[in-house]
Design a protein around this nucleic acid. Structure first.
Length: 575
RNA sequence: CGAGGUGUAGCGCAGUUUGGUAGCGCGUUUGGUUCGGGACCAAAAGGCCGUGGGUUCAAAUCCCGUCACCUCGACCA
């Protein structure tokens, strides 16, 4: 590709809307153009990147016996009503009517379509297991798109669905897919992507992992052990607490006027917040019933865990007085029987606690859960903390970090196959319901994540495997006849050997040419200049600055060929 | 959905307090001089000041409505 023929435009100024590196560079470098909120058109440079990512995905999916299919973007709502998600999912699912007045949806994920495709086809156990996948557009009407391609409303996703006749078979295939995902990320140049245990949320199923690129700009909170393999999304991370020790004391009621926060009360009583009880009030969606979550004073409530425990949606509570709750003075002892209490396991660590007295202006000290509240069920509803105890190795080694979710895998079980009536005839002649797994990676988000992971102050540094072109050829002084002739020839020769070249043949100054090259982020650069040619050399360098050498002009072609091959091989992309 | 912010040329911004008919830098076009890290000189094109209404002799500027976008939070298969 000649630069002069390419539809592109670069910007010197950082656009006002951009916050994170990938977004800034992808706008400044002319990678994409915003069409609407969370909706982008991609320029050729980005399309080339995503096509390469897709190709790697295809190769790895095919390698684990996947079969590529294509589901529709717009589909009748009927199959979504069958699965129950038409009603269960909120306004992220775009619903509309066709001209006949029929309910339609835009696909935000394709479990329903996958089951619809397979259910009459795979009617014998002999056809199992199998996996089908597609790479296609999804539309999710996100409440808030952000960060360029990190979170958008319309995007391309590789989504795969596997079908099995036994849990063991699903688990085995799940591991194969897990390994394939590791290969995909490694080949795309981000081997640092880690997997974490995750909450399965609305997808259903029990076992799920997310693949995360750790970065401060990530949207998810992660809990990672510095000493062992334990890694989990904050939403699901189990908590373990040390026994704080101490003596049982007498229960006493103390006046704490106007002290509504844990900090106020503990400061007033000169106590550690760890020796207090925090009460957080929620309301359930279903019946408006009040729920009080009790956790140790220094711990925060993990609402995802609480939601899963209650098996109900929860919302911040309104109008506490109605339920007989004294805001700021709520405690486990003498709590109104109108409200449901949930006790966190952190409360078991201390025999002598401070808590609200359920009376405006009073707290209790010396509370002992067993003695003063009685035998209650404890459950894990706390948020993991920095330097907390690892639930696997037991060391005080937890670290909190943030990550971008670049992929996820779920063992779905029979959520969709049973609600949509998918059956096969087993060996023994009986009808059985198959079980499923599903596996997704967002293509554009992965591209942006690679940019987040690999960039410098001047632009992205694309890994050779997904770079828009493999080599950037810069003709410094394209108006110089000798330079022009040599660069033209090298361009043709490189292309003839199958190397992808972006040839900057513009008669612009070195500064412009180099800064544009930095923004394009092509991993290998060849500079042809009058100065160099005078000495019979051209300059070859790597975008990441790990190489800068002068090569005899006649050897440039071979040298580039070798470098491209080696750089691909490093990423496991030598074919 | 809650809180805050911004809409003026392709991009980045000033002008709004104190109404007077629109400006700067970058980019683009043309001519010339430069040339290894975003060069210089000269000329030029390009804007119903998000949008609807109101006040006024007069509105980018004041008032009311509305839409869009951004940030944080909520939510997120």
């Amino acid at each position: 590709m000649k630069f002069t023929a390419m539809l592109t435009k670069r910007f010197k100024d950082t656009p006002a809307d951009c916050q994170i590196a990938s977004h800034i560079f992808m706008i400044r470098g002319g990678y994409m153009k915003n069409v609407g909120n969370g909706i982008y058109s991609l320029f050729p440079i980005t399309k080339r990147i995503t096509s390469k990512i897709e190709r790697i995905m295809r190769e790895e999916m095919d390698a684990i016996d996947g079969q590529e299919v294509l589901f529709p973007v717009a589909m009748p709502a009927g199959i979504w009503k069958e699965s129950g998600r038409y009603d269960a999912i909120g306004s992220e699912l775009v619903r509309f009517k066709d001209r006949g007045g029929n309910d339609m949806v835009l696909g935000m994920t394709h479990e329903e379509a996958a089951v619809q495709l397979a259910r009459e086809t795979a009617d014998s156990y002999q056809q199992y297991p199998f996996m089908i996948y597609q790479i296609q557009t999804k539309f999710r009407d996100e409440p808030r798109a952000r960060g360029g391609l990190i979170r958008v409303r319309e995007f391309t996703m590789k989504d795969a669905y596997s079908f099995h006749t036994s849990k063991e078979d699903l688990e085995q295939y799940y591991m194969r897919c897990y390994k394939a995902y590791e290969r995909i990320f490694a080949r795309c140049g981000v081997p640092e992507v880690i997997s974490v245990k995750s909450d399965s949320g609305m997808m259903g199923g029990k076992v799920a992992h997310e693949f995360m690129l750790c970065t401060p700009v990530g949207e998810d909170s992660l809990v990672v052990c510095r000493e062992c393999d334990f890694r989990a999304n904050m939403e699901t991370a189990e908590c373990v607490y040390d026994d704080l020790g101490g003596e049982m004391k007498e229960l006493q009621k103390v006046a704490t006027p106007e002290m509504k926060t844990i900090e106020d009360v503990c400061a007033f009583l000169s106590a550690d917040t760890k020796r207090s009880v925090k009460a957080v009030v929620y309301q359930k969606e279903t019946d408006d019933k009040y729920v009080v979550a009790f956790v140790r004073g220094d711990i925060e409530v993990n609402e995802v865990k609480l939601r899963n425990y209650l098996k109900s949606e929860i919302y911040p509570a309104q109008e506490l007085e109605k339920a007989g709750l004294a805001a700021g003075f709520i405690g486990p002892r003498g709590l109104s029987s109108q409200v449901q209490a949930v006790y966190d396991i952190s409360l078991k660590t201390c025999p002598d606690l401070i808590c609200g007295a359920n009376e405006e202006g009073y707290h209790l000290t010396g509370l002992n859960m067993d003695r003063d509240v009685g035998s209650v069920e404890y459950t894990d509803i706390g948020k993991a903390v920095q330097d907390g105890i690892c639930p696997v190795c037991g060391k005080r080694s937890l670290s909190l970090t943030r990550g971008i979710e670049v992929g996820n895998i779920f063992q779905l079980g029979d959520k969709y196959t049973s609600s949509m009536g998918m059956k096969y005839i087993d060996k023994d002649g009986t009808l059985k319901t198959p079980i499923m797994g599903c596996y997704g990676i967002g293509v554009g988000r992965l591209a942006a994540s690679v940019c987040e992971a690999h960039h410098d102050d001047y632009g992205p540094i694309w890994p050779m495997s997904i770079a828009p072109w493999q080599v950037q050829l810069c003709a410094l002084r394209a108006d110089d006849q000798e330079v022009r002739a040599f660069a033209d020839k090298l361009y043709e020769d490189l292309q003839a050997t199958g190397i992808e070249v972006l040839y900057d043949d513009r008669p612009v100054s070195a500064g412009v040419m180099f800064s544009d090259a930095d923004l394009t982020g092509i991993p290998l650069r060849v500079v042809v200049s009058p100065k160099g040619l005078k000495n019979g050399t051209v300059e070859i360098s790597k975008r990441d600055k790990s190489l800068l050498e002068k090569v005899e002009a006649g050897l440039a072609l071979d040298s580039v060929k070798t470098l491209v091959k080696d750089m691909l091989a490093e990423l496991g992309c030598d074919r």
